[in-house]
Design a protein around this nucleic acid. Sequence first.
DNA 1: GACTCAATACCGACTAGACGGTATGCATTC
DNA 2: GAATGCATACCGTCTAGTCGGTATTGAGTC
Lengths: 210, 210
Amino acid sequence: MTTRAQHQSKTKLLNAALQVIRARGYAATTVDDICHAAKVTKGSFFHHFKSKDDLALSAAAYWGEMTEEFFASAPYHQSDDPLERLLGYVDFRAEILQGELTDYTCLLGTLVQETYATHPDIRAACDKGMSTHIAIITRDIEAARLLYAPDAMWSAESVGYFIQSVLQGAFIFAKAKQGPEVVHESLAHLRRYLGLIFNQPQNSTRKEKP
Amino acid sequence: MTTRAQHQSKTKLLNAALQVIRARGYAATTVDDICHAAKVTKGSFFHHFKSKDDLALSAAAYWGEMTEEFFASAPYHQSDDPLERLLGYVDFRAEILQGELTDYTCLLGTLVQETYATHPDIRAACDKGMSTHIAIITRDIEAARLLYAPDAMWSAESVGYFIQSVLQGAFIFAKAKQGPEVVHESLAHLRRYLGLIFNQPQNSTRKEKP
DNA sequence: GACTCAATACCGACTAGACGGTATGCATTC
DNA sequence: GAATGCATACCGTCTAGTCGGTATTGAGTC
């Protein structure tokens, strides 16, 4: 086996962790669960990770890398207009609501709920991952603000957090309802709000009279 | 001891469960944790509840009763205007962000994240509790819609889910950041959105020019 | 109002199994 | 030949749930 093939075990464990933790939650997933999902033995697990908590830390970091790569290569970046990129981001978030719940929900959101009071380092890792993502979209929000709403009372960053709050909260309802319908509807409201605060009249709130 | 005093054990266990589960998550809280927090023995626990999962079910129902009672007696119901009541609700949600995280976050949101894929009955109980709450606020939203935005493209119910999504998502960030600031900011955006879709110009998006 | 009796509430030691983590050993690579 | 990657058997602890037992209560009886 080559070096790449050897390191595959670690990657397989990380990918399995993302899936299993998002499905079962962190505390309820056992090391054996992850090993089984990754088709790897326990010995291999503890060779690559000091402990289960250490895996959680690595998984949070891995999630950050994966998602930033994923969003960085998404098509909405092609536009020259920051507002178009922002709305493109929101639309893209709606488009990727495909397949199983574990495929489109957020690891960090689930993880931080379970660990914020008991695992300070995992909480911090989740915070970092989410903050990084928000910082990236905040760049477009700020550029759009300067262009389209320079007198706005709100900060670009707070809009970034608002967008993510809507997403995270909608994921909770997706889990409660076993489907992404609420996410779609909430993203529609979010999109309308963004249109309104950036003074884009084409995003009307009312039905057209025939 | 009177009958009331005897039943106190069960209530103490339920109240303890609300606190401990919101802090540590469901899977990570042990039956002993809850007994200790309630100052009650394990024997008493399993006298009142068949199992830990049975407690979760009871706790979800208990949470529903408690919160609906709490919101029903809140001052914002006094207004005659449904929109005022709705905005009063949102403001009230901001006002109660006091004390510890475990005092203002939502049990059902945490619970459903951990159990949706593995405990169908707990998932359903959480869904029921959240849906009931949304149905109640949707009544005011629908009344406000008929009064202030009869041609609106959106449904009252979807606005109800949107409001709760913002709250639930903001709670996740409150946990990540260890404080309610993000919740306050997200509720400010939410309030502004509601003002806009109900055509209330006083909720301006822009700074006043001096 | 004293007495029985059954049901309810509660107690706490105990158990079986699960789970995180370890120890040891071997094969491959550098 | 030393480090890395991996496999397997094993261990100690933790935890949900049990089980036998006691205390309290409330209804019925006289």
